[in-house]
Nucleic acid binder design. Structure first.
Lengths: 217, 217
DNA sequence: ATATAACGGAACGTTCCGTTTCGTTCAAGA
DNA sequence: TCTTGAACGAAACGGAACGTTCCGTTATAT
C-alpha cells in the first residue's frame, strides 16, 4: 500500500525529448491560470477529430486523444464526463451548416441534396465522425438519444424541399414531406454505412428520380 | 520473466460453487475426446446470442460469452479467430429465411416486406444482432466486407418484387429494381438504427405507397 | 496401451478507463 | 503586494477487460 512519493523534481525536465512524434511542436502547454485554457480544448478536439478520421471509432480512446493532444487525461475528464460526450462534441463541431436546396424543381433539389451530402461525407472527417456516432448509438443510450434528435431535426429541414414542391403544386397534397425526406436521407446513410460513397452522378440521378416520381401531382 | 508454475492440483476443484449465477445447470462440460464438443459450440452460440439481445454490442465480449456459456476462452478462440467472427456467426445463424413476397401487386409486396422486416427485427435477437453487425462494420474491415456482401445479396433478392412488377407491366421499364429495393431496405434500416421499429401500419403503408408510386407505368 | 485432441481453469502481459497526487503557472481578490 | 485558487501536464494508481498461453483432465481413435 506504500505509495511511491518519489516525485522527479520536474524542474529540470522541461526538455523531455518528444518520443511520441505525433505532435508538431515539442512544446508543452501549461496552465494559464484559474481558467480554462482554450488551446488545450482546441488541441483535444483537433486530436480527437484527426484520430476519428484516421483510425475510425475503434482507435478513438481517451488515452489516444490525450497522447496526441499532448494533454493530460485529467484535463479531458475535467471537461468531458466520458468518451461518448467527447465524441459527440466532435460531431457537433463537424456537422457544417447545410444549404437549403431550392431550385424550383423537386427532383433537382433531391439530387442536389444527395450529391452534396455524399460529397460532404466523402471529404474530411465528417463522414467518419457520423459513422462513429451511429455506431456508438447502437450501444450507448446517450448517443442514441442525440442521434435520434438530430435525425428528426435534419429530416424536418430536408422536408422543406418537398413542402415547397407541394406549395408550388408540383407534388400531390396527400404526401408526407418528412417521410419523403427520411427516405432520401436513409438512402444516403445506407451508402455511408456500407462504405459506398462513390456513387456516379447518373446513378444518383436515377435514385432521386425514382424516389421523387411517386410524389408528383 | 519467471513464469508461475504453481498449478493448483485441480483434482479436488471439481465442485467449485457456481458464483456467476448466469447458467442454469451447475454442471461443467468436459472434453468428449479428440473431437469437437457440439454442446460447447451450442452453449457458446446461445450465450453469445443472449448477450447480444440483452446487452447489445457493448456487452458482447469474449470474456462475457465464455462466462455465460461456462466455457473456457481458449475453447472459443479454438473455433473463432476473433470477436468479429463469432459475432458474424451468430448473425448468420439468426437471419432466418425470408419469404419472397408475390401478391401480384407491387405496393402490397413492398408493404409486406417492410412490415415483416420490422417485425422480424422487433422480436427476438435478430434486430439487435443486425445492429451490432452494422456497428461493428464501421470499424472492422472484415465485418464491413461481410455486411456489404450480405446487403448486395439481400437487395438482389428483394428486387424480385420490382422485377415481377416490371414483367407484369405494372411498373415502368426504365427503372432500376435493385435501386428500388435498396431504397426500401434503407428506409427500414434507418428505423432500426435509430431505434424506431414501432411504426404504425398506416405510416408504413404511406411509406410503401410513396416509394412505389413513382415506379408505376 | 498409447497418441491425439478438445475441454475448462488459471494466469499471463497489455490496453484502456477513470481517479488521484504532484509541481507549475497564472488571474483574481484581499 | 501577497495570498488564494483553479487549470494545466506528467505520472502513477487500481480495476476491468482484453487476447493469449500453459496446464491437467477427459475421452475417442488407433
Amino acid at each position: 500500500m506504500a505509495r511511491d512519493k518519489v516525485q522527479k523534481t520536474a524542474a529540470g525536465a522541461a526538455e523531455k525529448p518528444n518520443t511520441s512524434g505525433e505532435s508538431a511542436d515539442g512544446k508543452s502547454r501549461h496552465s494559464i491560470g484559474a481558467r480554462r485554457n482554450p488551446e488545450a480544448e482546441q488541441a483535444i478536439l483537433d486530436a480527437a477529430e484527426a484520430i476519428l478520421k484516421e483510425k475510425g471509432p475503434g482507435g478513438f480512446s481517451i488515452e489516444a486523444v490525450a497522447r496526441r493532444a499532448r494533454a493530460g487525461k485529467p484535463t479531458i475528464y475535467r471537461w468531458w464526463p466520458n468518451r461518448t460526450s467527447l465524441l459527440l462534441t466532435v460531431y457537433q463541431r463537424q456537422k457544417g451548416a447545410f444549404d437549403t436546396f431550392d431550385s424550383g424543381d423537386v427532383e433537382t433539389d433531391a439530387l442536389d441534396f444527395l450529391d452534396h451530402l455524399l460529397a460532404y461525407w466523402r471529404e474530411g472527417a465528417a463522414g467518419q465522425v457520423f459513422r462513429s456516432v451511429i455506431a456508438e448509438a447502437q450501444s450507448d443510450p446517450d448517443a442514441a438519444e442525440v442521434l435520434e434528435a438530430y435525425s428528426h431535426e435534419r429530416h424536418q429541414q430536408t422536408a422543406g424541399i418537398f413542402r415547397r414542391g407541394m406549395a408550388r403544386g408540383e407534388l400531390r397534397a396527400d404526401i408526407d414531406p418528412v417521410l419523403a425526406a427520411e427516405t432520401l436521407a436513409s438512402f444516403a446513410r445506407g451508402r455511408l454505412l456500407i462504405g459506398k460513397l462513390d456513387v456516379s452522378r447518373t446513378e444518383l440521378a436515377q435514385a432521386a428520380r425514382q424516389i421523387v416520381a411517386g410524389l408528383k401531382a
